[in-house]
Design a protein around this nucleic acid. Structure first.
Lengths: 109, 109
DNA sequence: CTGAATCCTTAGGGATACTG
DNA sequence: CAGTATCCCTAAGGATTCAG
């Protein structure tokens, strides 16, 4: 499927446009590697379904890497790929803007 | 309404999370001031309804400024506010990442 | 623990027509 | 030109259950 974009930023949005993707990526950029349950705990409002769905899409776009450990109980870890690492400046900028805004409003916790 | 965020970036998403907002903002950051019809032409896939809706939300968040000229035919111009200007680094980073990706895939036009 | 599968609801968003 | 107003419908996403 070849999608035609009229603006470069649309390519960005096609990858990080999902409702929770940026939140997930911002967590991964700080913690390096997180388990499924770690992400769930860090994003209380997300459902399992949404989380796994967003993760699979990010994986399909080669932004995150999924490592399965064949243990009992199961363990799966997620981390940024090298492609995902290239997002760091962008993710930092997005976090920075939010922090600035929060600083103004003092409404973050 | 006080919304509680668990991550600073959620504050960012609450402002630019709309489907077309980042596209609109990226256009405004480059062209400085655009009319409604300019935006429509630059974003062929957006409907009037969506465009005006997204614009109104951005205006409510004090990100863009709306100037109405009492002429016939009507003219309305949109531009970034000073608050919107603080988004420039972030918007540039988002465009840059998309451009990089497009460069790899050579699928932009 | 890490999901997949199913069902179900709602609201995001498209098409169209109308207005100052 | 720059929007509203309606109608309408799909698909995003929530709740719940099942499974390896």
């Amino acid at each position: 499927m070849t999608t035609t974009y009229h603006n470069p930023v649309e390519a960005t949005l096609s990858v990080i446009g999902g409702k929770w993707k940026v939140v997930i990526l911002c967590l991964l950029k700080e913690t390096d590697t997180m388990r499924f349950s770690d992400l769930q705990r860090a994003i209380p409002d997300i459902t399992k379904k949404m989380l796994s769905q967003q993760l699979r899409e990010l994986e399909a776009d080669h932004i995150i890497h999924r490592t399965v450990y064949d243990e009992m109980p199961p363990r799966v870890e997620y981390s940024l790929t090298s492609e995902g690492e290239t997002m760091r400046p962008m993710l930092n900028a997005m976090c920075a803007w939010g922090s600035r805004k929060m600083g103004q409003q003092a409404e973050c916790e």
